[in-house]
Design a protein around this nucleic acid. Structure first.
Ligand SMILES: [Zn+2]
Ligand SMILES: [Zn+2]
Ligand SMILES: [Zn+2]
Ligand SMILES: [Zn+2]
Length: 589
DNA sequence: AGAAACGTAATA
DNA sequence: TATTACGTTTCT
């Protein structure tokens, strides 16, 4: 049952429809043509492949997937009406928002509870964690406990781009020839045996029964709702049903799925960033894989808070928004470029598309770099969410302030994500040094997902296309610019230690990177796509860069910032990337 | 875990 | 109806 999560809920609730997101058609990725070289392209019939994968070109992964036009509000049954109003707040209230946890699509204005409690994912249009879910405490993570993972790092090993050769190559589907008799999964069956209808059954429901996970959840209930009344209902029906059950059971599942989705996105971003870098040094020893981490969790949440009334307090800031958009665009461009570099040919050959815009940008000034870093960071990281409430009007407090503060903090993910890969592992324990807060909040943010790309990219790199990909790339961009990559995520917290920990060695810096981070990001805005308009944006906390490196012990490292900076100047990009992961301070510097 | 394959939603 | 491709399922 569960599985069908979408289905289920859909069916029950909405009419059955699954709401799969579709490409925005406006982002750069959507506008470009197929590369013809990635695995998916090769699989396409148009490129002579078998067509079994049915996936879009890696270079065409939409950066801002939108809800289908047919999507309607779970409560009132109507479509998004953001176009009918001018202010941001109204737009938000009238737009359809899809919850990544329960998957409901609803107008914030149709919720009875305050919309302020929703956490908007600004990476994906019309995507948030609805107030209901939040109230229930499900934060994204799931609580399920069950299962799946936490966001952690995703990929564990792999990616060593430079150093290692890929394990096995991928197999390029070359289609016909490739397959000889050997493979036919389904097809064979059908053909041989049954014959019947191949696809489409609408009922999709048959399938399922899969696993049942269930969580004991508690709640969920209630949701639905509504305000609606009036009209509508429509379709969705049943919604009314009121009852919703979807909740319980399916929610979790849904949640998980969604989570994965988002996660994938995140990973993709990471890959992009890292692609190339890393490695560097060392490798070597160590290894222990590990990972692990953390989690934290707990979240806690918010119990109660809020309540009903809504107040949108959302503060939107248009100026910021605009800026974000710009950044976003840039980001996108970079992304594409990077992808291309990864191996996909885009840059090199074929295709002629991308005109100049996309490729040029290199910035080198320090400042710029920093900024970019930030942005990038956000990309990889789970960034995306912000609480709608930012400001929250509701003051309640009650529970305390803690809560309030918390929300905004949501962003912080515990995730370890990132780095991970093989080489880095810190040995550090963490302590906090900077400001820190690690909080565990459990939220992971993992949601964003775009997924496939990442993976695929990887693949490609490793194998296929790539043979050269790894190395080749022109030195220029990559190499220097530094900008390019680096990414990585941020460093949130504390972990300063690295240097320290080991004692000093000069080499240290490079060699041991740190581990992850966990923590807090400041959020930055992400940029995303063209279409997202609503969201509130909140200003990043700005804190000044520290002038010295705080050690875990609380003392400052003997080397002051400027000295470190000089050291950094002698490092190459990869090395710098590694350093950036060591601790937040280094990253900022 | 990752990759491949599939069912079928969304669109054209 | 045809095509693209999302999200899940199944296989490795
Ligand atoms: Zn392609
Ligand atoms: Zn797009
Ligand atoms: Zn509505
Ligand atoms: Zn929800």
């Amino acid at each position: 049952m569960v599985e069908s999560v979408e289905v289920m809920s859909g069916s029950k609730a909405l009419g059955g429809a699954r709401r799969r997101r579709t490409r925005c058609r406006r982002c750069q990725a959507c506008m470009r043509s197929e590369c013809g070289e990635c695995n998916f392209c090769k699989d396409m019939k148009k490129f002579g492949g078998p067509g079994r994968m049915k996936q879009s070109c890696l270079l065409r992964q939409c950066t801002a997937p939108v809800l289908p036009h047919t999507a309607v509000c779970f409560a009132c049954g109507e479509a998004g009406k953001e176009d009918t109003v001018e202010s941001e707040e109204e737009k938000f209230s009238l737009s359809l928002m899809e919850c990544t946890i329960c998957n409901e699509i609803i107008h914030p204005s149709c919720l009875k509870m305050g919309k302020a409690e929703g956490i908007i994912n600004d990476e994906i249009p019309n995507c948030w964690e609805c107030p209901k879910c939040h109230k229930e405490g499900k934060t994204s993570k799931d609580g399920d406990g069950l299962g799946k993972r936490r966001l952690d790092n995703g990929e564990v090993g792999r990616w060593k781009l430079t150093d290692d050769p890929p394990p096995s190559k991928k197999k390029p589907p070359s289609a016909e020839e490739t397959r000889q008799d050997g493979q036919k999964r389904k097809k064979e069956k059908e053909l041989s045996q049954e014959s019947g209808p191949k696809k489409k059954m609408k009922g999709a429901r048959e399938k399922h029964l899969k696993k049942q996970k269930q969580k004991p959840n508690s709640s969920d209930s209630a949701e639905t709702n509504g305000p609606n009344s009036s009209s509508g209902g429509q379709g969705s029906g049943g919604v009314g049903s009121a009852t919703q059950a979807p909740s319980s059971t399916s929610n979790q599942d849904q949640r998980s799925h969604h989570r994965e989705k988002l996660e994938r996105f995140k990973r993709m971003c990471q890959l992009l960033e890292r692609t190339r870098d890393s490695s560097s040094s060392s490798s070597s020893s160590s290894s222990s894989e590990s990972d692990s981490d953390s989690d934290s969790d707990s979240d806690s949440a918010s119990p109660g808070g809020a309540s009903e009334p809504s107040s949108p307090a959302t503060a939107y800031n248009s100026r910021e928004r605009e800026r974000e958009k710009e950044r976003e665009k840039e980001r996108e461009r970079e992304r594409n470029r990077r992808l291309a570099e990864l191996g996909f040919s885009a840059s090199d050959d074929s295709e002629g598309e991308r005109t100049g815009n996309e490729q040029e940008q290199e910035v080198t000034s320090e400042e710029t770099q920093q900024q970019q870093q930030r942005s990038r960071k956000s990309e990889n990281t789970p960034r995306g969410r912000r609480s709608a409430a930012v400001t929250e009007i509701e003051d309640e407090d009650a529970a305390g302030g803690g809560e309030k503060n918390r929300k905004p903090g949501l962003l912080t993910p515990p995730s370890p994500s990132a780095l991970s890969s093989s080489q880095h592992q810190p040995s550090i324990g963490h302590a906090h040094s900077e400001g820190v807060s690690k909080r565990s909040n459990g939220q992971e943010v993992s949601r964003n997902g775009r997924t496939r790309m990442e993976k695929e990219n990887a693949k490609s790199n490793s194998g296929g296309t790539n043979a050269n990909a790894n190395h080749r790339h022109q030195s220029n961009k990559t190499g220097r610019a530094g900008k390019t990559r680096s990414g990585t995520k941020q460093t949130p917290t504390q972990t300063t230690g690295s240097g320290t920990a080991n004692g000093g060695n000069g080499g240290v810096l490079l060699s041991n990177p740190a581990s992850r981070i966990a923590a807090q990001l400041t959020f930055i805005s992400p940029p995303k796509a063209v279409q997202m308009e609503r969201h509130l944006v909140r200003p990043p906390p700005a804190c000044p860069e520290p002038h010295c490196l705080l050690l875990d012990s609380g003392a400052s490292h003997v080397l002051p910032r400027d000295v470190w900076l000089r050291v950094f100047q002698h490092l190459n990009q990869k090395q710098l990337c590694v350093c950036m992961r060591v601790c937040r301070t280094w990253s900022r510097w």
